[in-house]
Design a protein around this nucleic acid. Structure first.
Lengths: 250, 250
DNA sequence: CATTATTGTGTCATTTCGACACAATAATAG
DNA sequence: CTATTATTGTGTCGAAATGACACAATAATG
């Protein structure tokens, strides 16, 4: 098991951890992948530590792979959380002691400076997998404002802030939506992230003007009322929009 | 001396360092505060380490205070540099060994994950002060593309990228310009950061529309030709623009 | 087959943007 | 002391983007 190897703390850098805010979008709701700790029953973000020979990015990829089964997804560090008091009352210490009295908890019982990453994933492709400290791994609704352990609420909120800013100069949606999606679905994604409603017609005009969408000759049937057209992202243009940024500013 | 205390590495967190890209603006040039190492004669960014009881932000403030004499300046972390190979050939180890054979260099001779900060300071207020490893602390011109040690060139370039993006949704200039400044000076600052020229009249129209400037009833005399008006930032509006962001996007 | 909510598409006035023109002015040169 | 010259202050104009709406088409539902 990968995690029990990780517990062999000799391979890991001290004082440094990372936490991942993994965003998914489902049924018009923005979700965050969440762990539920076995012993202390607290909610926590998926996180991990850095091996002595790997980069932070690689460590974050490992965490993502282990919790979601996914590889190659949008992943970005956004802030370091270094309050010297943030590691106090780390429930992992208590959890570990109760779970397994033989394990040395001293690695967990130190001050951690944690690098926050956020990831955007396609909800349906995720296979949520708990780690050795948690009894379940599940999606929680951002709107629900669940109480997380330590400073994880702060981490989530700051990730959301960054995501909102990103929306203004980069395209978003690939990685968060299925391959084919409708305009109303894309709009709902934007509205959910921004926390406000947008005009349907103006939204369509603007998003189309970026040239990152290909309109398909299919419609989504099954819902009530008129069937909307399906779109997919034009990866070529999407990628160049990611690199060069959208319109914006000077 | 503060630094020799810092060398007492028992107070410091292992594996974690920080580097500051301190931007200044002078004579229409964007500058970076740079250290020149005594022994290896390499150029380096001001940096430091984190005490066991302080936050990263606090450690960065210390570094800034020590190198510039300034307190309370714009300072922001922008990225963590964690390539496992980045600490190889850290000249500080060699420098230290040659400078003082009694000092234990083992603290320096470890892998460091470095948090990049960038700061915006008013050039004329800075009192550049070398640290114990360097023989001088001076402003270098960003355009000159001086070769820095380790990955510091990369750190500077990424800081510049972030600064350019920031320009599009936040006001910039306070902290980089003197209290009173002219419109052409402000424009040159923008042009220097962006690396491109802007139309004089359109720039003025746009920057004024933000409502962050107060036009004064004074002009700057002494230069040739027509004397431009002086402006200062309206701190009230500037601050709220910082918080709420400029126009932009959705 | 009518109802109803939703989608596709378009209009219009307002604002913003990009590219310029021209007059005012302050040191400098003669 | 006056003309020169480069720079600054201010404004215009068409094009493009934006925000606020209207109306027809349509696909499930009853």
């Amino acid at each position: 098991m990968v995690e029990s190897e990780s517990l062999n703390s000799g391979d890991l850098l001290n004082h440094i951890s990372l936490d991942c805010v993994i965003f998914g979008f489902h049924e018009n709701e923005l979700k965050v992948l969440t762990l539920h700790l076995k012993t202390t029953k607290e909610y926590a973000l998926p996180g991990g530590f850095v091996r002595k020979d790997e980069s932070l990015e690689n460590a974050a990829k490992r965490v993502l792979q282990e919790r979601t089964g996914l590889d190659n997804i949008f992943l970005k560090q956004f802030k370091v959380f270094s309050d010297p008091l943030r590691s106090l009352n780390n429930p992992a210490v208590k959890d570990l002691t109760e779970l397994d009295t033989e394990t040395d908890t001293s690695f967990f019982d130190q001050r951690f400076i944690s690098v926050g990453f956020y990831a955007l994933v396609e909800f349906t492709e995720v296979n949520p997998t708990p780690d050795f400290l948690s009894d379940s791994c599940l999606w929680t609704n951002v709107k629900d404002e669940i109480r997380f352990m330590m400073d994880h609420n702060k981490i989530i909120n700051e990730a959301l802030d960054v995501l909102r800013v990103q929306l203004n100069y980069q395209p978003i949606g690939y990685n968060l939506l299925p391959e084919k999606f409708t305009m109303p679905e894309l709009q709902k994604l934007y509205e959910t992230i921004l926390g406000k409603e947008l005009d349907r017609r103006n939204f369509q005009r603007k998003i189309l003007s970026y040239g990152i969408l290909d309109k398909l000759n299919e419609r989504r049937h099954g819902g009530a009322h008129k069937s909307p057209f399906l779109y997919k992202f034009n990866l070529r243009n999407y990628q160049s929009a990611l690199n060069e940024g959208l319109s914006g500013g000077w």
